[in-house]
Amino acid sequence: MKTIQPLPLPFRGIVPPMITPLADENQLDIPGLERLINHIIAGGVHGLFILGTTGESTSLSYDIRHELVKRTCAIVNGRVPVLVGITDTAATESLRLADTAAKEGAAAVVAAPPYYFSLGQPELIEYYEYLVERLSLPLFLYNMPSHTKIVIEPDTVKTLSQYDNIVGLKDSSANNAYFNKVMAKMKDRQDFSLFVGPEEIMAETVLLGAHGGVNGGANMFPELYVKLYAAAESGDLETVKRLHAIVMQISTKMYSLGQFGSSYLKGIKGALSLLGICSDYMASPLHRFREKEREILAEQLKEIQQQL
Rank of each mutant, 00 (worst) to 15 (best):
T89M: 13
E126R: 15
N219H: 09
S136T: 12
L33Q: 01
Y62Q: 14
V15F: 10
Y281C: 07
L208R: 15
G235I: 12
A98M: 01
D29F: 01
S193Y: 07
I86D: 04
F260P: 08
I37N: 07
L68E: 03
E133T: 13
T159C: 09
H66S: 14
P154D: 05
A111L: 10
L119N: 03
I50A: 00
Y255C: 13
L207C: 10
Y163T: 03
F192G: 01
L83E: 06
G258L: 04
V196I: 14
M220S: 13
K158Q: 13
A231E: 02
Y281V: 11
K149I: 10
G258P: 02
S172P: 05
L131E: 09
P21R: 09
P138A: 09
L36P: 02
T87N: 04
S59N: 14
I14L: 12
E200C: 09
E34S: 13
L207T: 02
V214Y: 08
E123Q: 15
I201P: 01
G168C: 08
A177R: 13
P114N: 07
M186I: 11
R189Q: 13
R71S: 03
R71V: 05
D24K: 03
D280A: 11
A23Q: 14
R294D: 08
E25K: 13
F260G: 05
L224C: 09
L265W: 11
V132T: 15
S136V: 06
G32V: 03
N215A: 14
T239Q: 14
F11D: 04
D155P: 00
